[in-house]
Amino acid sequence: MNTRSQILLWAAQRASAVVLALCVLVHLVTVIYAVRSGLSAAEILGRTRGNLAWGGFYALFVAALAVHAPIGLRNALSEHLRWRGWTLEAAMLLLAGVLLVLGLRAVWAVFA
């Protein structure tokens, strides 16, 4: 991987961290609200189904996670297992794809 790509990966991880920090905050407040208000699963689904704002928010959450986690894991694996090169890049790309698919599937389940 060339130097420019390495820099852009670093920038993407920092930018996705900012998005994640906000998303986690909103998510936690939402969870606390839902629990304290005693909302049932049906009531929660009633508010999320067809709601573009919630769907969009959680899709953004998943996208930020799919960017952030593989880049961080790439560094950890490289430093601690000395795993480098194209096999590592391919594995992390695969991980990003899996996180994205599983995450969006979960979002779709509460949106559709």
Binding site: M1, T3, Q6, I7, W10, N75, S78
Partner: peptide, 12 residues
């Protein structure tokens, strides 16, 4: 900047 960037440079 090119010499100090990337996985072996400041971004590590």
């Amino acid at each position: 900047l090119a010499a100090v960037a990337g996985d072996a440079g400041c971004h590590a």
